[in-house]
């Protein structure tokens, strides 16, 4: 889902950077100083989890997990994704300085959208079916929305990118299903083992 340096037009880059700056500002306002270690270690876990390759037929895909990230962190997903992508640019040279804004937006915005759309279903304590469906929807919609935004960033940079943009979205359709299923199973697991992680999504002030 990373867009390389030098592909997008200046307008798209500037818009992406501006919107990401706004998102990060909101995220930082919600992020208390004492939460920084928790959010940092959690983003490290997501960073590592996104290196996991899952087989699908003869090929394999790496996990994105921005749905799960959104469900757990809400608006704090913005700073978390920003830092994660900056480290990926540093350590692996995926993406870079000028695309940091657009790439962060494409991953973190769907995370926040899914937090608002499906967070309530995770919150309802005893409705198992609603819980599973919300988690699945959160995981798959985050990936779908993300791929649409990647496609849109390409398309807005030039009409000639349209076929490539369509292929990006199409290629993410199977990923969407897998991510949704994975997110649902993972959320069920967390509900049994560590429910406070999921509650962190709607109780921003955790007492420590």
């Amino acid at each position: 889902m990373h867009i390389s340096e030098g592909v997008l037009s200046p307008g798209v880059l500037i818009a992406g950077a501006g919107l990401t700056a706004a998102g990060v500002a909101v995220g930082l306002r919600k992020l208390e100083t004492k939460e920084i270690p928790s959010v940092g270690i959690l983003s490290a876990a997501f960073f590592v989890a996104s290196l996991i390759h899952v087989p699908i037929g003869p090929a394999s895909i790496h996990l994105i997990l921005n749905g799960m990230l959104g469900i757990i962190l809400g608006w704090k997903a913005f700073p978390a994704v920003l830092v994660g992508l900056a480290l990926q640019a540093l350590l692996f040279q995926f993406g870079g300085i000028t695309t940091l804004g657009v790439n962060t937006l494409n991953m973190a915005f769907p995370a926040v959208v899914c937090y608002y759309l499906f967070g309530w279903g995770i919150r309802i304590g005893n409705r198992r079916l609603v819980f599973i469906l919300s988690a699945f929807a959160g995981g798959s919609c985050a990936v779908f929305l993300g791929s649409v935004m990647v496609g849109l960033s390409l398309y807005l940079s030039g009409e000639a990118f349209l076929p490539a943009a369509k292929v990006v979205v199409a290629a993410h359709l199977p990923v969407m299903v897998i991510e949704g299923g994975l997110t649902a199973v993972c959320a069920l697991f967390l509900r049994r083992v560590k429910p406070e992680l999921l509650e962190g999504a709607y109780v921003p002030k955790q007492s420590s």
Binding site: A45, V48, A49, V54, G181, L182, V185, C186, F189, L190
Partner: peptide, 14 residues
Amino acid sequence: TFAYLVGMLLVKSH
């Protein structure tokens, strides 16, 4: 199994 792996990572990180 991969979903549990991710879940376990998150639990450990927490």
